[in-house]
Design a protein around this nucleic acid. Structure first.
Lengths: 207, 207, 207, 207
DNA sequence: CATGAATGAGCTTTCATTCAT
DNA sequence: CATGAATGAAAGCTCATTCAT
């Protein structure tokens, strides 16, 4: 009788998620209210429940989307020819949002994951996927002699990912800090970690 | 008949804070309720307000105490003779709690700081103090030729601190990961960052 | 599907105000609880806050409405031809409620105004408006030779208004008193105050 | 064993009542808290309950004391030779406090009496006593030809007392008003009400 | 006498969620 | 599809009162 256009439905859903994302970034998962999200998305509270079963579902979707994005970035990374440069670029890009003073929703997700099993599971699945991608990329680099062959690729991938989390924290801990300077240290650190022992050209990042 | 024992009062206060800390770790700052904290501390809701003006004050005290602890660790660090070894030890100690699966309250503080000005201020003050301590320590190491003299000490200190935040995140993202392996990468990374360029003894950390 | 009927909303608002008025008259501004008002209005506690931001707003609306009514009566007064008769009629009408034993909310407003700046302001604005109306009415009477020209019209207006407050108090102090007798004295008093000195027909009010 | 000095006990009781009176004047009967009263009286909450069974008892005592004072003033009145002058003086004195901007606790009592049976009873007993005193005084004046013999003494007494309530209200409704001017109207009004019809010397109050 | 720690019922207010229209 | 009125279960917090010391 009524043709529910699934495309339109999906579009609206995404629109609501975007609004929710803005609210979550501003007020946190618990702090943001359904009313706030509805106002931002310009729909009524009742209508929201046509798209999401409850608030938790919105949080879950945002969490998934946020992590999906990060993972997609990592997938794109595998295409570069210089593995270290690719990693640097990616880390830089993902911590770039910090410069705006908006820490985004990542810290919120991490804190929520510590308490909420569903979020935790999503986070861990996405993290594992990212880690696999990155580790594989590092191993390829090792095979090509461009990355320190002694490095534990899996563990190194995990640590590199956690650097991004750390850089989000850094933007809150020290907003007054010159991001150029801290980025440079970050790059030096990653470069020195990944570079093969004999080659020392990476030292140039400090000069 | 007369004097209130201020010692007893302080003891009770600390007892309540401990209970609150447990609740916050379990449910988050917003998720934990006054009733929950009171039950955990075995006092009545009304009585809690003899010790704290409001919930925010409890959050503030917990935040302050948690950060104080971290800072006190950094102050102790300055006493070691080998600066790199001292840094490694401290980073290790502060991310050690992760192994228990209890991420503690640090991620909660970071997420809360993004939205709450009072918490943010506390966090930033403590962070700055820690950064100063650590930067000074690094500079001394540079003067003694034990740390790369080209390193931007202030920025390096900031990044090192954020590594701890990252390691907390890591413990949630990948609890299944062997902490020994990730710790080793972490140590390698720090060692290579801090070591002076000519000396290559630090490479041994991988072997 | 669409428009909120603003008429219905306003009707409900008035309904709630009426319920609140009954509760305030029974229990006072502080004594009446939100739960009590909701029960009286047959709505849920949460729903009340769709119509009023907080309890104070309800008190303010009741205060405003109560005083508006009194002022509207004074405005109507200016139409009589015999000024003294008009004043008597109005004073009588406004203290008439007392006979039911229900003192209404006026004394509550007066007591609250002594401590609450917002209520005080409303009360004073309304009082000033009433006083201006009444003073102007008296001055017209003086011009027409029907009111004692030596009378300070502004001060007399203020005193006449306070007579109504006093009559509310009287109904509580002495409910057993014959209202006909006290009303007669009140009328005599007002008549003798307002009448021009030479004419003595006003004395008849006692006979 | 322990000699409870009943004099000291009574003194303390009065001290507490004075403190309570200040708090009630500032915050109202419901608004003032036991803690506030204790702070003002410089005693502990527990100790307060050695002197009063509960808060209601304090309110009752304050109510009684406040009304006692007013009644005592009326008793003193009976000694003057010119009855009208005595009444004027008394009304003036009792509304004098208003000039300080402090409306005192009378309006609070009136509002409370509308809802609380115990307070109402106290108020009505005291009011009746005052009314009897004043009515008798007026009757004596009538016998001596100094007060209008046609006046209903009882009702007039009631109305005169309510004038004082009204003047308290006036001080809140119109604090900006010149008290000298309103007092003068008040005096004129009372004088004209009470004066015997033939004598017209009272008119001088306006000149 | 005197203290203040302790209680717990009850207050105002918020908010995810439902449902008649 | 879409609305927003309506619900009601908490939440944080207050405060009169009690009681061990």
């Amino acid at each position: 009788m009524r043709t529910v256009d699934p495309v339109k439905h999906e579009e609206k859903r995404i629109e609501i998620l975007a609004a929710a994302g803005r609210c979550f970034a501003k007020s946190g998962f618990q702090g943001a209210t359904i009313a706030q999200i509805c106002a931002e998305a310009k729909i009524s509270p009742g209508h929201l429940y046509h798209y999401f079963a409850n608030k938790q579902a919105i949080v879950g979707a945002i969490t998934g989307a946020g992590l999906d994005y990060a993972r997609s970035r990592f997938a794109a990374m595998a295409e570069g020819s210089d593995p270290i440069a690719s990693v640097l670029e990616e880390v830089d890009r993902l911590s770039a949002h910090n410069r705006k003073g908006a820490p985004g929703v990542l810290l919120e997700i991490l804190a929520a994951a510590a308490r909420n099993a569903a979020i935790r599971r999503t986070l861990q699945e996405q993290s594992q996927a990212m880690r696999s991608l990155l580790a594989e990329f590092l191993r390829e680099g090792q095979a090509r002699g461009m990355i320190d062959p002694d490095l534990d690729a899996d563990a190194a991938a995990a640590v590199l990912i956690s650097l991004i989390d750390g850089s989000k924290a850094l933007s809150i801990r020290a907003p007054e800090l010159d991001t150029a300077r801290s980025s440079k240290v970050l790059e030096t650190m990653i470069t020195r970690l990944l570079s093969p022992p004999t080659s020392k050209p990476n030292r140039h990042t400090l000069s």
